[in-house]
Design a protein around this nucleic acid. Structure first.
Lengths: 195, 195
DNA sequence: GTCTATATCTTGATAGAC
DNA sequence: GTCTATCAAGATATAGAC
């Protein structure tokens, strides 16, 4: 498949538009014409850059995961304590959500997975694997350093924390008084922190 | 709007089919024809029972919330300890998810909320309000009885627990080795339980 | 690389017979 | 209540000129 780093400037604007539309309406909620209008070109020109909708969505997810990995590295470079790292991680989701209640690209696509091409589902799975692995690693370090309670396994912390963040965005969309991913995640972090 | 308790036997089968389709593919992922095929009648007959797709989805969510409330009452009648009640609550989500990775109706609709009629969004919001209120009440009782740690507020426990369950279904769909809502929720419960 | 034009299909919804 | 027939709109995708 195409790699996001090898595409033209226009194709990148197509990916930008598609990413935003997926975060707002989901894969089944946007069309090539929506993308075309956002980019300012005609529908068939989108097909020139991405032959199928599935391929376009796959590249969106691919780039999204890549950028996430960059952010994870940055967090490790800027923070040492597990709590600070996990808080900064939650801020990634909060920043996304604060833009018009945008969802995580792969949270949205994960929900829609049963009607997605395999190509897309594969990229979504990679995103979740990357995140669970990183969170597990961070939790393990934090426990070894005596910063996090060891009542849960590192894997347990990882899957719980990720689920909270993805879920809080859904719930926050569904209800008016939803408080957002960062706030909800802070509850869990509090329960895991040594007094 | 129509109330689910006042509809005919055929209309109920329509709601059954629509519910299942929403849980599998979402609002934007199914059509009147899909419903018609599941029920075994033709597309215009669906319109006879529900004039618009929005109305159909709203009744699905309305009935779903009603049944959820019945389950919540049952849980209160069958379990006394907060942990047992919260575990039984998680089992509701687990049971849904164990059917072909079906999502919570209102979790799916919540994710899609930006492309849904107001009528539907209103019902989805009611679902979340009902759940957060009930969980808050259960957590409060559990803390007063000394069964749950008081490091988090009852409201904090409620929004965290609901987010975990909704999120775990999304994540469980997106990755192969996802462990399901019940398992993930048990981690959080463990962290909240007095040793 | 972008365009006009078009093919083909599916969508939600309506009209009107039975 | 269900059907056949149909509509107008929108979907993904392709052909071919510029």
């Amino acid at each position: 498949m195409k790699h996001f780093s090898e595409i033209s400037a226009t194709a990148e604007r197509v990916v930008d538009a598609a990413e935003s539309l997926i975060q707002e309406r989901g894969y089944n909620g946007f069309s090539y014409d929506d993308v075309a209008k956002l980019v300012g070109i005609k529908k068939p020109s989108i097909h020139h850059h991405f032959a199928t909708k599935g391929e376009l969505a796959a590249v969106v997810a691919q780039r999204y995961t890549h950028r996430f990995k960059e952010s994870l590295l940055q967090i490790e470079g800027h923070h040492v304590k597990a709590q600070d790292r996990l808080t900064a991680y939650a801020d990634l989701f909060e920043k996304t959500f604060s833009t018009n209640k945008h969802l995580c690209v792969c949270g949205m696509l994960g929900a829609e997975s049963s009607s997605l091409p395999d190509l897309v589902n594969h990229e979504v799975e990679r995103f979740f694997d990357v995140n669970v692995d990183w969170l597990t690693h961070i939790a393990q370090d934090g426990q070894r350093a005596g910063q996090l309670l060891s009542v849960l396994s590192p894997e347990g912390i990882a899957e719980t924390y990720l689920s909270i963040l993805e879920g809080a965005m859904i719930v926050g969309r569904g209800m008016q008084k939803g408080t957002g991913p960062s706030h909800v995640a802070s509850h869990f972090l509090k329960a895991l922190t040594i007094a």
